[in-house]
Amino acid sequence: MKAVICRELGPPSALRVEEVPDPRPLAGQVLVRVEAAGVNFPDTLIIQGRYQHKPALPFTPGAEVCGVVEALGEGVEGLAVGTRVAAAITHGGFAERVAFDATKAVAVPDGVSSEDAAALCLAYGTVLHGLEDRGALRAGETLLVLGASGGVGMAAIQIGKLVGARVLAAASSAEKLEACREAGADGLIDYSAEGWRETVRALTEGRGPDVVFDPVGGPYTEPALRSIGWRGRYLVVGFAAGEIPRIPLNLVLLKNCAVTGVLYGEFTRREPEANRAMLARLFGWVASGRLQPAVSQRFPLERAAEALEVLGARRATGKLVLVTHAGAPG
């Protein structure tokens, strides 16, 4: 089979597509023929050795897949060969086949494409876990999304609107903000401009947002925390800006707010039943037409390095997906 191989830590250009033996499922695993794989910011980190999960070299990146079950490892129950499933895993997804823990697999219903299912597992799973489980976002509240034009940010806009929140989108250019508006954002904030906190204040009539969803970190965290409303919930999702911010804890005291971590991968490991139920809800929303994953570009497997470069350079709006079947659009 073909697989994207990382033999040395470094930039996407160091990756190679190679012919490797098909994996075999161990006890408790499923073997899946991959039809689509989501491309995510952690993929750009793991190939540089900068992610908390550090697989031994050589390895295949890719933490989000959808495909068809081809074989079951010993002891696997509740899944059948031929079932189309999706899963958030740690690595291995940028390949024609991958074996992973069967508890991570969620059946994909008819009406949900493989590309959409692959795009849902990590980004939309992170968002729903963050906004609902960790942030307790309620209808009528105001949500501020940082890095709103990226895959996770777009998902946050969409899920925020689904639960009935008013969504403010913060991004760094007019083009990105227009994409956020098209995704349903109620208010737009250019946080590359001076004084963007004043825009937040004006859009919330001085109250501040109830929930802040922050996958960016860096220089944006403290201003956003200073802008949060009374009893607000600040969700720490990631650090795409590259810098882990240090915040003055007096801000948490003065706003009577909560700063809450959202570590979705560990949630899937510790609470697999809850995660499967959550992903099933997401698939149901897509199948019913209530949610359309924001897939902006599709790449063939052979162009995985290019997809990662686009994502790492922050040139992407929405989700990027690799597809393994022939004739995949670029």
Rank of each mutant, 00 (worst) to 15 (best):
A241G: 06
Y264V: 15
T268V: 14
E306R: 13
A123Y: 03
R181Y: 09
A183G: 11
K176R: 08
V211N: 13
A183C: 02
E77N: 09
S13W: 15
G93K: 08
V321Q: 08
V4W: 09
R290V: 09
Y51C: 07
R33M: 05
G153Y: 07
A274L: 04
P12V: 02
R303I: 08
R246K: 13
G147P: 02
A88V: 10
R201I: 02
V321S: 10
P21G: 11
S172Y: 00
A313H: 07
V106P: 15
A274P: 00
G49C: 11
S114G: 09
E222K: 11
A240T: 01
P25G: 08
L249Q: 08
G312H: 12
L9H: 14
L235E: 07
I189S: 00
G67F: 02
L162I: 10
K176V: 00
G28D: 05
F100A: 04
R16Y: 06
I228A: 00
P329M: 00
H53G: 11
R298N: 11
G38R: 12
R166M: 04
N40L: 02
P12T: 06
F213H: 12
Q158C: 05
K54G: 01
L143Q: 09
A241S: 08
M1N: 10
W230I: 05
T221F: 01
K255I: 02
G318D: 02
A287E: 02
E132D: 15
A313Y: 03
N40F: 03
R246A: 10
P61V: 12
V76M: 09
P219Q: 05
G284T: 12
L31C: 07
R290M: 02
G130R: 11
G242S: 03
V310S: 09
A185P: 06
S13G: 07
E198I: 03
A107I: 00
P248S: 06
R138T: 14
G28R: 10
R201L: 10
L291C: 06
S114I: 08
S192N: 05
A139I: 02
A119S: 06
V98H: 12
G218D: 04
A95Y: 12
V262D: 06
D110L: 06
V112Q: 01
G184D: 01
A280M: 07
K319D: 07
Y51K: 14
A316R: 10
D43Q: 13
Q52F: 04
L311C: 10
A36S: 10
V39P: 14
I157C: 05
G92P: 03
V98Y: 01
D214R: 04
A241I: 10
E132I: 14
V310P: 15
